[in-house]
Design a protein around this nucleic acid. Structure first.
Lengths: 248, 248
DNA sequence: TTATTTTTGATTAATTTTGATTACATTTGA
DNA sequence: TCAAATGTAATCAAAATTAATCAAAAATAA
């Protein structure tokens, strides 16, 4: 039997049952386990199924909570390192903006006991900080389920009504040549608005994003005063030469 | 069984019950407690659940202060009865306001699958309805920790920008003589604004509040079109005589 | 046909997952 | 507050799964 026809059978079984393990598939498709494994590996790289340890799952099932799963898990130590550095810059009495970046949300754990006011569009941050010392101003507007954050015109107008001491913002890409870039227009708008309304803008940016450009180039480096990152590197020199304070 | 499928099961149990302990999960998922612990740890860092000592909680419930929880828990059957009646008045395509009343929040369970837009100042409602069919517009402003809701001038202005088909509002007291009354000025403002911007105002009001006056008398009965309650009573007659539709 | 490539399956080594045990931490209740 | 009870983290060994390697079988091409 060819790979193509096995693929059909496997796909059918996985779609119907939601999940299946290698043994079971080997039996039903009448081939060896090793062949099933090879098939599953191919199908997974083609994005047809989600490969689990011991079998496979229907994509939709495996990713159900992806919408509200925060992409926090990746590089957690780096993010915490950056967040800790940034937290040291926050003093009691500060009014700060925080956007919905995953690194930014790691800040919460370090600022729970500070007497500050936070203006944010991120629901996870609100969860994390409600019933703490921190006072929260929630940015209103349309809720984006995938990002668990508020975006859009109304949100922008909300931000423009406030002036803050500091803004702590995430970014998808940053480079000397092209400045700041983002994967989504919505997030870019929020970033620009918050930066414009803050006296000091902190960019929280792990080393994987340095020198990278993303889909939308949306702002010059000049809107940033402080770059917080996790790597001592020659790469940082040009940012310092531009007058940006770099923390690492 | 793979982590992914256990994750699904655990998530389902925790979402349904609000919380679950390790023993219980181990039994239901048919694995050892230590495996459940490991799963819970992963799920917690992914932001899927809130890890407690001994088990896990639904994220949304984790941070809600006890006072609010108690309010929700009180007279739950009556509130659900009223909420079910009110839900029948909501059609696909509706744009509705919901305030932060405890009876109003019971509406969520009945409207998850409706294709509607909800404008609300209540965080528990947002938690409950995020990742459902419902589209959410969050009212911005200062977060009141005790009520888990947004209030104040900015919130009022946010409300005034929208026009909705229906408003579903809670109330602390209502009487023929004095109209609507509330225990707090902040909530009264929100009630008035939402009622003013909606074509039809539904008051969700269990029988314990009928004929009672509270601290602040803030609006006449004329802002209400429909009164939803749980008791057939002679008390309701005068409201009907005033042209208010009464559901029970 | 014969040579060559591709696919498959068996074997073994490496990895991942799991559960048991112990020591440590937290909560509970006197 | 302290001590018992309960829950957790850490460590390790066993079990299950997978990756890697290679040879046999099947398909393809010359």
């Amino acid at each position: 039997m060819s790979y193509q026809s096995r693929k059909q059978k496997i796909l059918k079984i996985v779609e119907e049952q939601g999940e299946a393990d290698v043994k079971e598939l080997a039996l039903k498709v009448e081939t060896s386990e090793i062949t099933i494994r090879r098939d599953l590996a191919l199908m997974a790289t083609d994005g047809l199924i989600f490969r689990t340890h011991g079998g496979a799952m229907k994509l939709s099932l495996a990713n159900i909570p992806a919408s509200f799963e925060q992409k926090i898990a990746a590089n957690i130590e780096q993010k915490d390192y950056i967040a800790r550095l940034a937290a040291q810059e926050i003093q009691d009495g500060d009014i700060i903006f925080m956007d919905c970046g995953s690194t930014v949300s790691r800040l919460c754990q370090f600022i729970k006991h500070k007497r500050i006011k936070i203006i944010t569009n991120s629901l996870p941050i609100v969860y994390e900080l409600s019933n703490t010392e921190v006072s929260i101003n929630l940015i209103g507007g349309e809720l984006d389920n995938k990002r668990q954050a508020v975006h859009g015109q109304i949100a922008i107008e909300h931000i423009k009504r406030y002036k803050a001491d500091k803004a702590f913002l995430g970014i998808d890409g940053i480079s000397i040549e092209n400045g700041l870039s983002a994967a989504s227009e919505k997030e870019a708008e929020i970033t620009i608005s918050m930066a414009a309304q803050a006296n000091q803008t902190f960019l929280l940016c792990d080393s994987s994003k340095l020198g990278k450009d993303k889909y939308l180039k949306f702002a010059p480096l000049s809107i940033v005063q402080v770059l917080v990152t996790n790597e001592v590197s020659e790469q940082l020199k040009p940012y310092q030469d531009l007058g940006i304070r770099v923390l690492y």
